[in-house]
Amino acid sequence: MNGQNRKDIAAGLEVAIVLKADQRTGKLTRGVVKDILTNSSFHPHGIKVRLLDGQVGRVQEIFNPKST
């Protein structure tokens, strides 16, 4: 599942994000969501989040999506 819809993301989910510094290479960083930083319900490049370790990036993949 991609991370373009805010409704699919919640604190505590394990996700893969792309950090600003890694956008050219596409290198993904895996972690657990602490805060959702994007206010809009959809973003074409991924919803911006802060991980528990403090890293900030846009969600590219959700590993344990919440049931809808």
Rank of each mutant, 00 (worst) to 15 (best):
M1W: 09
M1N: 09
M1Q: 08
N2W: 04
N2I: 11
N2F: 09
G3N: 06
Q4W: 07
Q4T: 11
N5C: 08
N5Q: 11
N5L: 10
A10E: 10
A10V: 08
A11N: 09
A11C: 12
A11D: 06
A11H: 04
G12W: 04
G12I: 03
G12T: 02
L13K: 15
E14V: 14
E14T: 15
E14Y: 06
E14M: 05
V15W: 00
V15T: 00
V15Q: 02
V15C: 00
A16F: 03
A16H: 09
A16W: 03
A16N: 09
I17T: 05
V18G: 02
V18T: 12
L19S: 03
K20E: 12
K20C: 01
A21H: 06
A21G: 09
A21Q: 10
Q23I: 11
R24P: 11
R24C: 03
T25A: 11
T25N: 12
T25V: 04
G26I: 04
G26V: 03
G26T: 08
K27I: 12
K27M: 11
L28I: 07
L28H: 09
L28P: 02
G31V: 02
V33S: 02
V33T: 07
V33W: 01
K34V: 04
K34C: 03
K34T: 07
K34R: 14
D35W: 06
I36M: 03
L37F: 11
L37H: 04
L37T: 12
T38V: 04
S40C: 06
S40Q: 15
S40Y: 08
S40A: 15
S40T: 12
F42D: 09
F42W: 05
F42L: 08
F42T: 13
H43I: 05
H43T: 07
H45R: 11
I47T: 01
I47S: 00
I47C: 02
V49F: 00
V49G: 10
V49D: 00
R50F: 04
R50D: 02
L51K: 06
L52M: 12
D53K: 13
D53Y: 05
D53F: 03
G54A: 12
G54D: 13
Q55L: 15
G57Q: 10
V59A: 00
V59C: 01
V59R: 04
V59T: 02
Q60M: 15
Q60G: 08
Q60F: 13
Q60R: 13
E61Y: 13
E61I: 08
I62G: 02
I62V: 15
I62W: 02
F63C: 05
F63A: 04
N64A: 14
K66S: 07
S67E: 12
T68V: 09
T68D: 11
T68N: 14
